[in-house]
Design a binder for these strands. Structure first.
Lengths: 337, 337
DNA sequence: CCACAACATGGGAACGTTCCCATAAACGCC
DNA sequence: GGCGTTTATGGGAACGTTCCCATGTTGTGG
């Protein structure tokens, strides 16, 4: 059981003034005499008074908390985004309630419910790879709670979104492969339900088109991002009568798995097959050869998304605009290509 | 501005019953007639009623939230621990408020304050590398809020702690190096203020002693975990008149940096110098050669710590015991040794 | 010296729950 | 049929704030 907590009433009683006055001092209200202000501050400090956010939250009907729902946080991408968001949020006096959906639709739904129960003031979401139904997220809109998507966004909802230029990033990656003489560039993409998968695939195709290279459907595969399956797809590609001489993957972890398999097969990277990833995850400079990849401004994604969310929190719902922010990527050419 | 929220009073009014009864239905209190129960449940569902945790929290003087303070979460270690803790916590109906101290003492202090303001029901802490003063954490004890340390623990406080057997892990790592014929094993350790640094150093020394190898102080370095400095220390070691033929580092990220530098110098790993890390971070199987390391049961650390914390939350402060849980490590021998 | 503004303070409702206590009805039981 | 017991319900305080409104007190200008 908890001990008695010091409240403003305790302070008021000891100083023989009303709790209103104490509250005024503590919230910095101007109309209170210098003398009482000092006395209150002094006693509050002595008693080790700590404001009770539980009461403030109820009173203000605000939790001063924003929720973040991400599919996972073991690879470095989402943690970095969260860092950026957390910075902005805590500077504005908001806490961050993080939850992982573990790439499971059901967990995402459950997490959304928790956020709702806890009356988060807004929510940042990056979808799971299997989310097809968005009812659990539309609830936020219905209840007037702002929502901002990042990275894995929902095309169905008219709300702010923060993404990187996946199309351009993929285009640059593939263009780079073409310009370094690759003739058969394979693409191991993500689930077609994800916006990012589509955009990256488009960039891949358009780069080939621009340089008049044939688009061979046999070199384009999409998979569910379950890393264990990567080697199956890579094996398939390598076993083709005309195997690819380059590989562009949906993300870095996929590229890592692919490289490990390719190296185990005894093929030389980049001589026999070049590999390019996406995201510049932790590990891309560890693997050998170092992975060429499309860097995303992770930290900035988090910051921008959090700022958009705070803007909505601090404005009337009628003013909300479905701003679509596209951040730039950067191609980092390293040893694998 | 928020729209009107559906409350139990709304439900009560519409059904012409008291809010007490509605509350009873919603909390599953037995003494309420089947008929009213049904009606309430039906209407609550229709109106899309959502309980307001803000009110419940104030009423119960519990935030139903546990705080976690970690030094960082970009390397995979802490995210994994957090995952374990989050699992246990959310199963028990608790939220998790995560904050990063970024290895900064001041941020750790500020984070602790936020936790206190928000009346977390308990807190899980892993210290920064620079924390020497524990007043900001002792406040929790004083206020009757349970605290559990993990990984980077505080020797000064009599509270539950969850660690791995750093001593034994280090011992096994160094023993392995000795048994594979290494004669001059260097150790790049962490700051001596950290408990884990001391324990791992002890394990290192005792392994050497057991096999009658000399302990050469010139081969033992400690640093502040700022990865940028690793190459300076490694350079120093390699430039010694009698350079080491093996290196045992305080953790994996340090080992990665060391390996990159060593490889750049043209030395062969493991032939000319073997490397062993600690923690089995993400990336240890990416780097080449794959890093031999001491695996920690990260997920389990989080689970165990969260359970110890919940046990305290649900029991009287007088029953709290400073349980010290030591989990087993496992030596993973891979290519780097 | 009086009217009126500016300042300092107090009182109490409100936020949405839970929970204790009271009350009324229904139900045996001898 | 009266009495104690169970069952279903209502009333209202409490949690710790904030904030509106009221009240008193001081100061200022004509």
């Amino acid at each position: 059981m908890k001990k008695h907590q010091i409240t403003i009433v305790d302070i008021a009683r000891q100083l023989n003034i009303s709790k209103s006055t104490v509250s005024r001092v503590l919230t910095g209200h101007p109309s209170v005499s210098e003398k009482t202000k000092e006395a209150v501050l002094k006693l509050a400090n002595e008693l080790d008074y700590q404001r009770n956010m539980l009461a403030i939250n109820l009173m203000s009907s605000q939790s001063h908390t924003i929720g973040i729902i991400v599919p996972e946080f073991v690879t470095s991408f989402f943690p970095m985004v969260i860092m950026g968001a957390q910075e902005v949020a805590s500077q504005a006096g908001y806490n961050v309630l993080i939850s992982q959906s573990n790439e499971s639709y059901e967990t995402e739904v459950a997490n959304a419910k928790v956020m709702l129960d806890n009356r988060v003031d807004g929510v940042l979401v990056s979808l799971t790879r299997e989310t097809r139904n968005y009812d659990h997220l539309k609830v936020f809109q219905r209840k007037g709670i702002p929502i901002v998507f990042f990275n894995r966004v929902c095309d169905d909802m008219q709300v702010p979104k923060v993404v990187v230029d996946d199309y351009e990033g993929a285009f640059k990656a593939v263009e780079h492969l073409i310009l370094t003489g690759r003739k058969r560039i394979a693409h191991l993409g993500g689930p077609t339900s994800l916006h990012i998968s589509k955009k990256r695939l488009e960039g891949y195709k358009d780069a080939l088109r621009k340089y008049n290279q044939p688009i061979d459907p046999g070199l384009i595969l999409d998979y569910d991002l379950n890393l264990d399956k990567v080697k199956i797809y890579i094996k398939h590609l390598l076993d083709l009568p005309e195997p690819p001489d380059a590989l562009f993957t949906i993300n870095d972890p996929t590229a890592f798995e692919a490289m490990i398999f390719i190296k185990a097969k005894g093929l030389k990277i980049p001589e026999e097959i070049a590999v390019v990833g996406f995201s510049n995850n932790y590990g891309s400079t560890l693997i050998e050869p170092r992975l060429t990849t499309v860097a995303q401004p992770t930290h900035e994604i988090g910051q921008v998304a959090a700022r958009l969310l705070l803007d909505q929190i601090n404005s009337d719902a009628s003013e909300w605009k479905p701003i679509y922010r596209v951040l730039k990527t950067e191609l980092l050419v390293r040893g694998s290509s």
